[in-house]
Nucleic acid binder design. Sequence first.
DNA 1: CCCCAGGAGACTC
DNA 2: GAGTCTCATGGG
Length: 287
Amino acid sequence: MIKVFCGDMNLSETLLSGQCFRVCELENGSFDVILSDRVINVFQNGNYLLVDSNNYDDLENVVINYFDLNRNYSEIIDNLKLNNPDFSDVLDNCSSYRILRQDPLEMLFSYIISQNNNVKRIMGSIELFCKLYGNVVNFRDKEYYLFPTYDRIIGLELKDLQLLKTGFRDKYILSAIEFLNCNKDFVVVINNMSTSDALNYLMQIKGVGMKVASCILLFGFARFDVFPIDTWVIKFVKNFYGFDGNVLQIKVFLEKKFDKNVGLCIQYMFHYNRNIKEHILLDNLSK
DNA sequence: CCCCAGGAGACTC
DNA sequence: GAGTCTCATGGG
């Protein structure tokens, strides 16, 4: 067990918000999280994370990186408040929320599967993907399956992908595999690209549009200047700002307001609308 | 029976 | 280029 300082981060809120599909909450309030190369069990005690794992190699740095603990979120939020005082209620409610730094390869397939789908089914399909083609890890007397490596994925055919129960998305997954065939080094390539070039690069894949590409860049590459605009965000913009437009118009509207942190703010809107707002309403009702 | 889910591509006009 | 339909599948 190691102890890692996490400041004012909220572990449960961060893990259960819908950005991560490989997390399981245990009875004791801790979480099992399957990372790209190991399994961790995390429990929050105040400003610290208590972490156990099947693999202690460089574990502290792995945890710091995964939960993005080196980023100064309060500074970002303070700056956003200065320019957007009308958004400060949302910012205050999201100040303990963190953008996880997840594995790019996993984000590519996970968010292709996510389209027009719900979180429970997304998790089920990804779990099947891992069970069928990923490596097994033993931790605390249980078996866990890591996300498949590049080499395992690259040889898969449509019939292999139909076992994941992703419906019509199977051909999109195949398109991503064909993309990987020609772009084995896509992580390096994207890291050397501007965000708008990276969006277009990913959108070569059939089944990757603006929303999915934005999620891949936000959660897999920590790019905060993207546009993961989905149904929750469209609802938020309509209700909060009274702005009624299509995705492209919303994109322009929000980029003007939030500039380089527009992706972070859109994620806050998603989180606020999907996970927080109802809790606030329920809290008020119970008073 | 309906509707919806962290959408995107094909098609129509 | 902007609307509209359709794509599997499971849950409410």
